[in-house]
């Protein structure tokens, strides 16, 4: 890493650590926690969707897997949600393999559509299953509070720092992947799949590695969400609109860049919260109008994502159209 970006990263980290101590209003802290959690999901998605170029629109299934596994383990067997978080990640990685097996045969839009189908199947199954709480979901019991019980009711600060820690872990995994040979293979798979295959790179194997990492990290975010909200149901944990939001956050910031999804989460959550505070509550959808219009404007005028504003040398995903030939 260059010295400038190291300084920037350290400065950002210091600011993130100090923020909740300076901004003591609960609404600010809540928004900040939401941003960190959304950022973590975007960064996790980025491993598969950004680096490997496999646009998943079904990541809510992994998010939900993390939340449901840890919740059920702690409610039925009294296992600490911290252990549940690990178990959820392993289950989600397994689910990822199950999803990847048929879906990795598909490319581009076909892959994206298939992942929507997978997400919807998982949601419908949970909705219809009484053992999994059905459409009602679970309200987590206020049992053991404190660190080991993963429930904090005195202050939001523990959730903030756990969310920050999880985000840093996810960024760290992203950074390691990006630097390792896996990262090179993934970019090769994204940009030149045929060339990569002809050089002996097993496409399915590396896509699967990306999928497992991405799914596992997303599931950890799901456990955190469940422990923070203490309520999970299929609609809030497993919906396709959540899957799409996870992808949008990464795309908004700049898919395939290390910090893009973080930036995207800050902007996306910021827009969402601001429009809700400014225009919401009327029940008339003004917030949706503004939110939607902003998304369209960004997509039209800043297609490479917000990161594109800072890095001028972001290579476009498709070659720019050739200038039209002019005959003298």
């Amino acid at each position: 890493m260059r010295r400038g970006s190291t300084a920037l990263a350290l400065g950002g980290l210091a600011a993130a650590l100090a923020f909740p101590l300076l901004a003591t209003r609960v609404t600010w802290q809540n928004t900040a926690i939401l941003m960190l959690m959304t950022a973590q999901l975007g960064v996790a998605w980025n491993i598969l969707g950004g680096y490997a170029g496999q646009v998943s629109l079904g990541h809510a299934a992994f998010f939900g897997a993390g939340a449901y596994v840890s919740t059920i383990l702690s409610m039925k067997l009294g296992i600490s949600p911290w252990l549940g978080m690990g178990a959820g990640a392993v289950c989600a990685a397994g689910l990822g393999v199950l999803v990847g097996t048929p879906c990795f045969r598909l490319k581009g839009h076909y892959f994206a559509m298939a992942t929507i189908a997978v997400g919807e199947i998982v949601q419908a199954v949970v909705n219809g299953s009484d053992a999994l709480g059905g459409a009602v979901g679970f309200t987590l019991p206020l049992g053991e509070t404190g660190f080991w019980g993963f429930v904090f009711n005195r202050s939001k600060l523990p959730y903030y720092y756990i969310a920050l820690g999880l985000l840093l872990l996810t960024v760290g995994v992203n950074w390691l992947v990006n630097r390792s040979h896996v990262g090179y293979y993934l970019r090769a798979i994204k940009d030149e799949p045929d060339a990569a295959r002809s050089l002996g790179v097993s496409l399915t194997r590396y896509k699967m590695i990306a999928m497992m990492l991405s799914a596992g990290l997303t599931a950890m975010g799901g456990t955190l969400y469940a422990q923070k909200e203490l309520f999970i149901d299929p609609n809030s944990m497993l919906s396709t609109s959540l899957s799409i939001k996870i992808a949008l956050v990464a795309i908004l910031g700049g898919a395939g860049t290390l910090w893009g999804p973080v930036l995207g989460a800050v902007v996306f959550t910021g827009i969402e919260e601001l429009t809700r505070v400014a225009f919401g509550g009327t029940g008339r959808g003004t917030d949706l109008v503004v939110h939607g219009a902003l998304l369209v404007l960004i997509a039209v005028y800043q297609p490479s994502g917000v990161m594109g504003l800072f890095t001028r040398r972001t290579p476009p995903a498709v070659p720019p159209p050739e200038p039209e030939a002019e005959f003298p």
């Binding site: 646009v55 581009g108 839009h109 994206a112 799409i244 992808a247 949008l248 795309i251 908004l252 898919a255 029940g283 008339r284 959808g285 003004t286 917030d287 949706l288 109008v289 503004v290 939110h291 939607g292 219009a293 902003l294 998304l295 369209v296 960004i298 997509a299 039209v300 297609p303 490479s304 994502g305 476009p316 995903a317 498709v318 720019p320 159209p321």
Partner: peptide, 28 residues
């Protein structure tokens, strides 16, 4: 028209934004 040659990701982004916008408009 403005996103015809944009990457698939920003196309998804644009039409998804339209979806939210239209639903909001109908509600409004």
């Amino acid at each position: 028209r403005r996103i015809t040659d944009a990457p698939m990701l920003s196309q998804i982004f644009a039409t998804f934004g339209l979806m939210i916008l239209f639903r909001g408009l109908a509600q409004y």
